[in-house]
Amino acid sequence: MSLLELFIIAVGLSMDAFAVAICKGLSMKKINIKKAGIVGLYFGAFQGGMPLIGYFLGVQFQDKITSVDHWIAFILLAIIGINMIKESRNSSCEVAVDTVADVNTDNSLSFKNMFVLAVATSIDALAVGITFAFLNVNIIPAVSFIGIVTFTLSMIGVRIGSVFGEKFKSRAEFAGGFILIIMGLKILLNHAGIINF
């Protein structure tokens, strides 16, 4: 997997965290670099950690399903992408944060609130980690890269939320879902020999 492909997947995966970071930014009375950094660290660490767990789970079954691994990668990425697109239709930040974590959209950055949000927004990355195992991706650089991209975009999301508000949340989720579907389709078509890039 090329660096560009990994970057595209990292951006796609981070869109859930980005959308929730926008909501966090909306709810905070005062934004500073420390608060944005806390949000970024939680989301970046979990978005990088979940694929690592998924990778080790996937390695356990890799030799048994190599003949259909491209289909599994496509199906997992497509399901994640479709779910993100469906979620993008719900443009309410209050509903997004409350549904994910059952917390109020206040400026609370407590461990409990942020832990639940970080886990909920990174579950999709677990499935991507399984896909990485089937594609023999070099996992440590990959998860580090995903974590850094998510950290950066989450910090930006907090700032966007404080300045521009809700309108970017649904667009971010839609874009992330679309990106993951396209990447899954590319893996499938590459394996079938229809495309070769």
Rank of each mutant, 00 (worst) to 15 (best):
S2A: 13
E5A: 11
E5D: 12
D16H: 08
I22M: 04
A36L: 10
V39F: 06
V39H: 01
L41T: 15
A45D: 04
Q47W: 12
G48R: 03
G48Y: 10
G49D: 05
M50W: 07
P51N: 01
I53H: 02
Y55G: 01
Y55R: 00
Q60P: 07
Q60W: 13
Q60Y: 15
K64M: 14
I65Y: 13
T66P: 08
T66I: 15
S67D: 15
S67P: 08
W71E: 07
A73H: 02
F74P: 06
L77H: 04
G81I: 13
G81M: 04
N83H: 13
K86Y: 15
C93D: 00
D98K: 15
T105F: 09
L109V: 15
K112S: 07
K112N: 11
N113Y: 13
F115T: 13
V116R: 10
A120S: 13
A125W: 05
F132C: 11
L135Y: 03
N136F: 11
S144Q: 01
V149L: 03
T150K: 00
M155Y: 03
G157Y: 07
G157I: 07
V163Q: 10
V163N: 08
F164P: 01
G165P: 14
E166C: 08
R171A: 09
F174S: 06
F178N: 00
I179G: 00
K186M: 11
I187R: 02
L189S: 02
L189G: 03
H191E: 10
I194S: 05
I194V: 15
N196D: 14
F197K: 02
